[in-house]
Design a protein around this nucleic acid. Structure first.
Length: 309
DNA sequence: CCAGGTCAAGGGAGT
DNA sequence: ACTCCCTTGACCTGG
């Protein structure tokens, strides 16, 4: 087996009381106590992240994507200026210590509003701030500045053209803080018009050190779909140096709801994660979260049992 | 207390 | 032109 660690994203459906995306709405944020409410959410979210990691450890799960809603409205302030910052920092340090002690891998997947290649300067600036906060939180956790702890995004712009958007991405990248550039990764898209592994490699990775996160479902529907998957895996994995590459796995929702759009994610996985001679980690993007991970592992065991017989 | 409406944000694709 | 999809369901109000 070349898949080393399989993880899930953000929500644990088994332990229902743990929440890591406590948030406040704009109207609440704008009240005089908005900032206290925001940091209170942040501290509670961080405490629950640690509880989820402990639960993961109990079940042998070493890979976990953290929510990007960890700290409400974080683009609106400097984290170190928050009231109760020491308390928040301690909660983050506890996470980082646990991650390192038990060899877990945690990542971020910041939202689609981050478009650092955007033609709109205001969008670029907001994206830089949001990505910086993600990097700063990982710094506060004491996590290495390495794409092992990936901050993974899409290019998310085709304007004014693919090559020019890549150029803008490369330019903006050089202005990002080290806490981001040292961890930033790029994921292949799910549409033939957008960015495949080859596009990312040619347009970005030849110029700056940004590893490619290969999403197996997106590969099916993206520009690379006529290429051989093993070759695309080799190409994506070659961008990781000596760091274990990260991948994403999911199944199309059409297998559960024929009328759903093919790029929508299913509750569970219906295909095996592809194999490769090189080890890699894999985050499952399933609506059923940890339940999907267990179901996949159980089916794998059944399969192995049948093969052995 | 619960159900339902609503929520900061970009961009592209499907209808 | 409008809705849905991606990332993260959870907040908040009115009954």
């Amino acid at each position: 087996m070349s898949v080393r660690n399989i993880g899930y994203c953000c929500i644990n459906l088994t332990v229902g009381h743990l929440k890591t995306s406590r948030d406040i709405k704009k109207a609440t944020w704008l009240t005089p106590v908005g900032i206290e409410l925001a940091v209170d959410c942040g501290i509670k979210n961080a405490i629950d992240i640690l509880e989820i990691l402990k639960w993961n450890e109990l079940y042998g799960i070493k890979s976990y994507r953290m929510s990007s809603n960890l700290l409400p409205w974080m683009s609106e302030y400097e984290i170190c200026d928050l009231p109760r910052f020491d308390e928040l920092h301690q909660a983050y340090k506890n996470i980082g210590n646990y991650v390192k002690l038990h060899n877990h891998r945690v990542t971020f997947h910041p939202g689609h509003f981050n478009v650092i290649a955007s033609l709109r300067e205001d969008v670029v600036q907001k994206s830089i701030i949001d990505l910086s906060r993600h990097g700063e939180i990982m710094d506060l956790m004491g996590l290495d500045r390495s794409p092992f702890y990936a901050i993974n995004i899409h290019i998310n712009s085709l304007q004014p053209s693919k090559p020019e958007a890549c150029e803008r991405f490369v330019q903006t990248f050089s202005g990002l803080p080290l806490c981001v550039t040292s961890r930033l990764t790029l994921e292949n898209d799910d549409s033939p018009n957008q960015y495949g592994v080859q596009d990312l490699y040619d347009g970005i990775c030849k110029f700056i050190k940004v590893p490619i996160v290969l999403d197996f479902l997106h590969y099916e529907y993206g520009p690379d779909c006529n290429s051989k998957l093993p070759e695309m895996m080799s190409l994506a994995f070659s961008t990781w140096g000596n760091i274990t590459p990260l991948t994403h796995m999911s199944s199309t929702r059409q297998l559960e709801e024929p009328k759903a759009r093919k790029i929508a994610h299913a509750d569970y996985i219906y295909n095996l994660i592809p194999e490769h001679q090189q080890d890699f980690d894999c985050e499952l993007e399933c609506k059923a979260k940890d339940l999907a991970l267990f179901k996949y592992q159980n089916e794998l065991q059944n399969l192995a049992h049948l093969i052995l017989k």
